[in-house]
């Protein structure tokens, strides 16, 4: 909650900022967000990037694109924040999609040394561990892989994240299109692996290529869709196609 206003006379800018913060449930200053590195995406996000201390939801059917994209984001986040990353997996998720593999994470931009991996038998324990991690001030981010989450638990995570300033990432595998999106997240992304189009006969080596959709964004502009590639050498994203702006696509072929 915002503290009661003591001073009667406020500047217009200050008032605007307060209204904005009430609207978005937190203030989006430029220092409060981590730029993704692609200007077209950052422009759509409040504060010019993924805001700290918020719940971000990533939806992926197979967890391959989602794992890669989150790894890259977490790696970038560790450049801004001290501390560790807590990655919580449920056993069912490990059986279905495999466990995390450190050399792969390293290539994806996340230093495995700064990772704490938690394997929980039930999704309930994953949510408990995420909340425990968010309440402690020592983590840069907490990521949890869950299938189902109700509004109440996602709200708890959002509040815990807000209180400590730790970012919370939720990696979900919604099988059907109509599955509930009920999580109270600040941003929601959908990720799919993207094949190389037939016209661009890109040769080896094979690269990570994701189709990224911004489905929801509080205080920003949702609705963008892009194809991103991960550049191993630079450790950064590379924009391949922007579906909002056809001109790039035509130049790239």
């Amino acid at each position: 909650m915002i503290a009661p206003v003591r001073i009667n006379v406020l500047s217009l800018a200050e008032l605007r900022r307060r209204v904005e913060s009430i609207k978005c449930a937190r203030s989006f200053d430029s220092g409060m967000a981590m730029p993704i590195g692609i200007k077209k995406i950052d422009d759509r996000l409040p504060g010019g990037g993924l805001s700290f201390g918020c719940l971000h939801e990533f939806i992926d059917k197979g967890f391959d694109a989602g794992t890669g994209f989150c790894t890259a984001l977490l790696g970038k986040l560790l450049a801004y924040r001290d501390g560790f990353v807590l990655w919580c997996l449920s056993l069912s998720s490990i059986h279905e999609f495999g466990g995390l593999y450190a050399p792969g994470l390293m290539a994806g931009g996340l230093d495995p040394q700064r990772l704490i991996v938690l394997r929980a038998a039930r999704e309930k324990d994953v949510l408990w561990a995420m909340e425990e991690g968010l309440r402690c001030n020592c983590l840069a981010a907490v990521l949890g892989e869950v299938r189902r989450i109700d509004l109440k638990s996602s709200r708890r995570l959002q509040l815990a994240a807000k209180a400590s300033g730790t970012s919370a990432f939720l990696l979900r595998n919604l099988i059907a299109e109509g599955d509930s999106y009920s999580a109270a997240s600040t941003t929601r992304w959908r990720l799919t692996t993207a094949p190389v189009s037939a016209s661009t006969k890109q040769l080896l080596p094979l690269r990570e290529r994701w189709r990224v959709e911004l489905l929801r964004c509080r205080g920003g502009l949702p609705g963008g869709e892009w194809i991103l590639e991960w550049n191993y050498e630079a450790g950064d994203f590379h924009l391949v196609t922007d579906f909002c702006d056809r001109s790039i696509m035509s130049t790239k072929g």
Binding site: D82, R119, A120, A129, G133, L139
Partner: peptide, 29 residues
């Protein structure tokens, strides 16, 4: 962030996670 305090709170977090979820389920590479 004071680094000794950061280390202390990471250790406390690891303790509480390990005690509830199990020592072998909270791990590092």
């Amino acid at each position: 962030v004071d680094s000794t305090e950061l280390v202390e709170s990471v250790n406390h977090l690891i303790d509480s996670l390990s005690n509830r979820i199990g020592e072998h389920n909270v791990s590092r590479f």
